[in-house]
């Protein structure tokens, strides 16, 4: 199975002419939890096909930023525009979210009562109304793509962590997303399983998928990212191409962070 099999109608390249240039545009985004200001004015533009790695110390607001992009959290001020459309969220459980923004969680969050294949076809058949047979065919192709086609009829807890995370990525891809958000996708994995997930993500990046990745895997960031964004205390402190980011960071806080992360 080659990379092109995965490229779908939603692939950024084929739609380029009809769409505005930026995949994500955030302007002056402020997010509060009660009195706590978690995002304190975020301006960030991500072009289509870009792979942005988001890093920063724990509690700096990385997850919250991702969750504002797909509307899992409602913002207090500012605006979030995805593919030319405003993300309006009340932050309520009753909102229906945009199915074209894929998201992969640290804890996989596969549906435990469904087989892997059922996990993959649930949303395509329910939301996109893809005929069942077609959804299954595509799901199998995706599973083969991430290397777990033999696990189609297994239940999630019968898989290793790495396999579960690859299944979760396949589940997100089954919706033909225009962009993918990853929230520390390898943090819950044993070291020997990290690379199998990163390999899948690397392939996805090479295909031109727009990706925003929260990760501490700096080697991966250096190799795959088109830009590294460093956050601290709810603000974007610095952003640069990976080479520049790692070799000559401008801000003191960035230097400290890189020092700590590379020392591990």
């Amino acid at each position: 199975m080659t990379a092109s099999n995965l490229a779908t109608a939603a692939s950024p390249v084929s739609l380029a002419s009809k769409r505005p240039a930026a995949a994500i545009k955030m302007r002056g985004v402020v997010k509060r939890f009660g009195a706590l200001e978690v995002l304190r004015g975020i301006d960030l533009t991500i072009e289509r096909g870009e792979v942005v790695v988001l890093c920063g110390p724990s509690g700096s607001g990385k997850s919250t930023l991702l969750r504002c992009i797909n509307g899992l959290e409602a913002i207090a001020l500012g605006e979030v525009i995805v593919e030319g459309e405003h993300v309006r969220s009340k932050g309520s459980k009753l909102d229906t979210l945009n199915p074209r923004i894929g998201m992969v969680f640290q804890a996989f969050n596969l549906f435990p009562h469904l087989t892997i294949l059922q996990n993959l076809i649930l949303a395509p058949t329910m939301v996109l109304k893809v005929p069942r047979a077609e959804a299954i065919e595509r799901a199998r192709a995706l599973l083969a793509r991430v290397g777990i086609e033999q696990k189609a009829d297994a239940f999630p807890d019968m898989l290793s962590g790495g396999q579960q995370q690859r299944a979760a990525i396949a589940r997100a891809l089954a919706m033909n997303p225009e962009l993918m958000l990853f929230d520390e996708p390898t943090s819950a994995l044993d070291p020997e399983m990290i690379h199998e997930v990163l390999d899948v993500m690397r392939d996805l990046a090479h295909e031109g998928m727009t990706m925003v990745i929260v990760t501490h895997e700096m080697g991966f960031a250096r190799e795959v990212a088109s830009r590294v964004v460093f956050m601290d205390e709810g603000l974007i402190v610095e952003q640069a191409k990976p080479d520049a980011f790692f070799s000559k960071p401008r801000e003191e806080r960035t230097k400290q962070f890189i020092g700590k992360i590379l020392a591990r």
């Binding site: 229906t96 979210l97 945009n98 998201m103 969050n109 649930l122 997100a172």
Partner: peptide, 8 residues
């Protein structure tokens, strides 16, 4: 949350 993210 995982279900919501899929647009259900």
């Amino acid at each position: 949350e995982a279900a919501r993210v899929l647009g259900l």
